[in-house]
């Protein structure tokens, strides 16, 4: 009876979301008086043993090159073999792009109840009850998992990475690997930028910016903060910004440490995608903008004047000038 964490990688690198699930898995294992193991699929260019500092003691590595790209069907089949071999009774994923594809399949394969998008440690005092966001962050629900094997997928940015000491034992795992039916032909990466769902800080702008030609200063601010860029839906709909920056109820849901909203009114559908951010800063010229009600800090004023000053002040703070 152990905890098994799926360690997600991209192009051979361990994702930040994996460090979150490892930290979370270690805590759950401690709570249950058991140990945490990990599973990694495909070629990895990092030292997996070093992940021991997040609490994992043993990592099963299935090195097969057929696993270098995600085919959820093949992945679920391989992970199920690791679950059976390790006797794990709780499996943890990140509820990221890959977790969303794999965890539901594994749930069916193992007949294991799944709670997706957990935001806290499970309550294991009497069974297994997991808190998750529902209604796009406007409420939460406590879900009881009724099956013997359980799966939790953890919301990105919901659990703090805890690094300590230690190394993990990395053991090759020989699995029967199915032939992928999903054949990846190309990967288009926005290079050098911080991925939106993994970003600690997000700078977001809305229709208040008037037009795409004014995004230079928003990009500048994001750059000095090492932040990802986001936008409101009308901005993406008008093609001022690419659709993968659109956050909200019908866009991407994010939960960064810091969300800076500039020239965004704060419509309920927008808030639904960003209301789990830890600190929210709103810059809007209208003191009545609904977003101020959801904000921690705010400035009532003209974005065109404030953004350059904001960038300057951050540069000064970071000793960049």
């Amino acid at each position: 009876m152990s905890v098994l964490v799926f360690i997600d990688t991209a192009e051979g690198h361990v994702k930040k979301a994996s460090l979150e699930v490892l930290s979370y898995g270690a805590k759950v294992a401690e709570q249950l008086g058991t140990t945490v193991e990990g599973v990694v699929l495909g070629t990895v260019s990092e030292d997996l043993a070093a992940l021991g500092k997040y609490g994992v003691r043993k990592i099963h590595h299935v090195k097969d090159g057929a696993l270098d790209h995600l085919d959820a069907q093949v992945y679920a089949g391989v992970i199920a073999q690791v679950v059976n071999a390790s006797g794990a009774s709780l499996i943890i994923f990140s509820n990221n792009v890959d977790g969303k594809a794999i965890a539901p399949r594994l749930s069916v394969r193992l007949k294991a109840g799944l709670v997706s998008g957990a935001v806290a440690l499970p309550d294991t005092s009497n069974g297994c009850v997991v808190k998750k966001n529902v209604f796009s962050g406007k409420a939460f629900a406590n879900i009881a998992v009724k099956t013997e094997i359980k799966i939790i997928s953890l919301s990105p940015n919901a659990y703090k990475i805890i690094a300590g000491e230690g190394t993990a034992e990395v053991v090759p795992f020989t699995a029967t690997v199915g032939t992928p039916k999903v054949k990846v032909t190309s990967v288009v990466k926005a290079s050098g930028e911080v991925p939106l769902t993994e970003a600690e800080i997000v700078v977001s702008a809305g229709r208040g910016l008037k037009g795409p030609e004014n995004w230079g200063m928003v990009e500048e601010l994001a750059k000095v903060l090492h932040a990802a860029l986001a936008c409101s839906r009308p901005v993406a709909d008008a093609h001022w910004r690419p659709h993968n920056e659109h956050v909200g109820q019908t866009g991407i849901a994010i939960a960064p440490n810091l969300y800076i909203a500039i020239g965004i009114s704060g419509a309920i559908q927008h808030l639904a995608g960003v209301n789990r951010s830890k600190v929210i800063v709103v810059i809007n010229k209208d003191p009545e903008a609904p977003f101020f009600k959801a904000a921690d800090y705010g400035i009532v004023g003209d974005a065109f004047e404030i953004i350059p000053k904001f960038t300057e002040a951050v540069k000064k703070l970071k000793g960049m000038v």
Partner: peptide, 24 residues
Amino acid sequence: LTSIVDFGLPLVKAGVKLVPADHV
């Protein structure tokens, strides 16, 4: 495989701290 135990609403924010526009 699962059942909902109960629901809850998130805690409301303490309120916004406003900073004057000329004090970025």
